[in-house]
Each structure stands twice: as structure tokens, then as C-alpha cells.
């Protein structure tokens, strides 16, 4: 999931970005409020992690701008201000979560995962589609109780499809959410290859097909092709 981390204190930003990346997030970073505002305008993020005191534009102003323009992107504030009035101001400005510095990276990661899950309407960290289980906290996938060996990118793709179960995930979405366009360049068929590899690992022969292709639209993960059948 593509996440924007906005923090001007470089040592913290780098550590948190690394930890989030290890947790399966694709992290874009910025140390400046104005630059972050521009990035948010240009790209779709599944989560924004925002410091309050920033150069260029304060975190609170940026948050108000985000809420004015994009209401559904979860925003987690990270700040050293722990007074009740600061928390209230942050949450009232539209933040979904508030983490006070110094915090544990694992806690930040868990909260980030929870926010993303909640955005797609899931409370349980384990998303089930037929006999497929996608554990978003342990980053494991099982089919019929057997673990599926996936690369980090493959798990991220499966997680994205599981979170949006029954919805068509376009190739553009996959590209945007799983690839850092600044650094990763791939052939135009890279997503097709990816999906094909994932299918081979998830939809084993003799098992119910869960990954479906919608020609010209994208892919969806569900029990049947139309994606409306419930488990």
C-alpha cells in the first residue's frame, strides 16, 4: 500500500520509512509541507503519516487541505505535542489517529495497518475469501490451511486485492500502489506477469478460482467471477 510519510526530522523519517517498507508499505517521503501537498495532489495514497511541525506548511494546515480535497485517505498524525488540546485539535482537523513521539516503530506500523484495513471496511487483520486467508499483520497467506510462499510484492498485490475484495483493481491502481514510479521502471506487461505468478500460487489446480480478470478493467479477488457471492 502506498503511504506518504511527511516528517522533517530526517533520522526519524528514514527509520520509520524503512520499518514501514519492511512491513509491506510502499513509502514516499517528504520533509516539507508544501512538497507533501503537491505529492498528495499528484498521487493516490492509501495512508498519510503526518508530522505537525513542518517547514513550508504546518501539518495541521496540510491536514485541513487534505480533508478539503480528499476525504477518505486515512491520516495518522505523529507529533511530540501530547497535550489534550493538541490531540483534540489534530483529531478535529480530520486525523484518524494520533501518535505521540517517541513511539515504537512496531506500534506505528500496527496502527498504519489498522488504518488501511479500516479504510476498506475490515476490522479483522485476517481477510478470508473462501479457503484463502490473508493475514495482514503477520503478512502470511494460506490456502486451505497451507501457507503460500509469496514475495513481498506478490503479498502486497494479494493484500490489496483482498482488502478490496469483490472490487475491480485496475492495472493503474496496482501500478500506483505497488510501484515507486520515481525509481521502478518496468515493462508494460509486468503487471500481467505478476498476476499470472500470483494466480499460479493462489489458484492451484483443483481449487476454486479466486483471482479473476475483467477484460479492459482489471482484476478482482472473490469466490465467483461476478464477485457478488458471499462466503
Amino acid at each position: 500500500m502506498k503511504t506518504l510519510l511527511v516528517e522533517d526530522y530526517v533520522p526519524l523519517r528514514i527509520s520509520l520509512a524503512n520499518r514501514l517498507a519492511e512491513g509491506g508499505f510502499l513509502v514516499s517521503q517528504s520533509g516539507d509541507g508544501e512538497e507533501a501537498a503537491w505529492m498528495i495532489e499528484e498521487q493516490e495514497f492509501a495512508l498519510i503519516i503526518l508530522d505537525l511541525m513542518l517547514p513550508g506548511m504546518s501539518g495541521l494546515d496540510l491536514l485541513r487541505k487534505i480533508r478539503k480535497e480528499r476525504t477518505d485517505t486515512p491520516v495518522m498524525l505523529i507529533t511530540a505535542r501530547d497535550a489534550v488540546e493538541d490531540r483534540v485539535a489534530g483529531l478535529d482537523a480530520g486525523a484518524d489517529d494520533y501518535l505521540v513521539k517517541p513511539f515504537s516503530l512496531d506500534e506505528a506500523l500496527a496502527r498504519a495497518r489498522a488504518l488501511v484495513r479500516r479504510r476498506f471496511g475490515h476490522r479483522d487483520p485476517v481477510i478470508r475469501v473462501a479457503d484463502l486467508e490473508v493475514d495482514t499483520s503477520l503478512r502470511l497467506a494460506r490456502r486451505g490451511g497451507e501457507a503460500i510462499e509469496l514475495t513481498a510484492k506478490e503479498f502486497a498485490l494479494l493484500e490489496m486485492m483482498a482488502l478490496r475484495r469483490g472490487e475491480v483493481v485496475s492495472r493503474a491502481d496496482v501500478w500506483e500502489q505497488l510501484y515507486d514510479m520515481n525509481y521502478e521502471r518496468g515493462a508494460s506487461n509486468v503487471i500481467t506477469v505478476f498476476i499470472s505468478n500470483l494466480r499460479k500460487k493462489v489458484d492451484l489446480p483443483g481449487r476454486e478460482v479466486l483471482i479473476h480478470t475483467r477484460r479492459g478493467e482489471g482484476y478482482l479477488l472473490d469466490r465467483c467471477e461476478n464477485g457478488r457471492e458471499e462466503i
Binding site: 533520522p11 520509520l16 505521540v100
Partner: peptide, 11 residues
Amino acid sequence: LRTPLSGLRSQ
């Protein structure tokens, strides 16, 4: 003080 402390902890 918390911001650099946070940096220390995260490192």
C-alpha cells in the same frame, strides 16, 4: 526533546 528521542528510539 521528544523529537530527537523519537529519532534515537526509531534508529
